[in-house]
């Protein structure tokens, strides 16, 4: 067994373990952290495939941004586990059915020789081969419509999310920074020339 195979099995075992713990961990924060671990070990596997751009982007986007916000929300919520577990057995057969469908779909995609390179040897590239450049070229030429479509979809999601949360409230005070910055001394301070009085104490001591 070569070193690479050993690393692969290590990462694969870690991914499976972490993914299982995501759904079995009692504490939602632990579950979210196990998801982070799953992402990280998945990035390791992609790195073995020489997909360095995708691997680092997975860490950057999912671990560095998405999961931070996830954790943020999960930590703030007061999750009642008993309530969550209610009706588990009622929905269990339905979940099982969904899982079975997904497994069949995956077998259909991965087992198909045309869609996945099963068995085909991966081409090794030289160290100076930049798969970022290659990916960019593909995205902006062959797959430009799919890429643009995904971008528009994300934009719609952003607009929708903002539209859902944006509401005007009357009782909120906000500051106008442009006005604050443009404040001059004369606006707030008035220097008054007060005519000096004759010294009060001076006359008495004489």
């Amino acid at each position: 067994m070569s070193f690479e195979t050993l690393v692969f099995y290590l990462f694969a075992a870690l991914t499976v373990f972490a993914a299982l713990r995501v759904i079995t961990a009692r504490n939602p924060v632990h579950a979210a952290l196990f998801l982070v671990l799953a992402f990280c070990s998945m990035a390791g596997i992609w790195m073995l495939l020489e997909a360095e751009f995708l691997a680092i982007t997975l860490v950057l986007v999912y671990v560095g941004a998405v999961m931070v916000l996830f954790l943020f929300v999960v930590m703030m919520l007061d999750v009642d586990l008993v309530q969550l577990r209610e009706g588990f057995w009622r929905w269990f057969p339905f979940g099982l059915l969904l899982a079975a469908i997904m497994v069949f779909e995956m077998i259909g995609v991965l087992g198909n020789r045309q869609t996945a390179g099963t068995g085909a040897k991966l081409a090794k590239h030289a160290a100076d081969y930049s798969n970022t450049k290659e990916l960019g070229r593909l995205i902006y030429t062959d797959y430009v419509y799919a890429f643009e479509l995904a971008a528009v979809l994300l934009l719609v999601a952003i607009v929708a999310a903002i539209a859902l949360t944006l509401r005007r409230r009357k009782d909120v005070k906000s500051q106008n920074v442009a006005r604050q910055v443009s404040v001059r001394r004369e606006d707030n301070v008035r220097v008054v020339q007060v005519p000096s009085e004759p010294k009060a104490g001076a006359a008495k001591t004489e």
Binding site: E52, F53, I56, L60, V63, G64, A65, S130
Partner: peptide, 12 residues
């Protein structure tokens, strides 16, 4: 090759 990206990922 993806050094810049790696830095961004690590700092995040």
């Amino acid at each position: 090759n993806a050094g810049l990206l790696y830095i961004l990922a690590m700092t995040s």
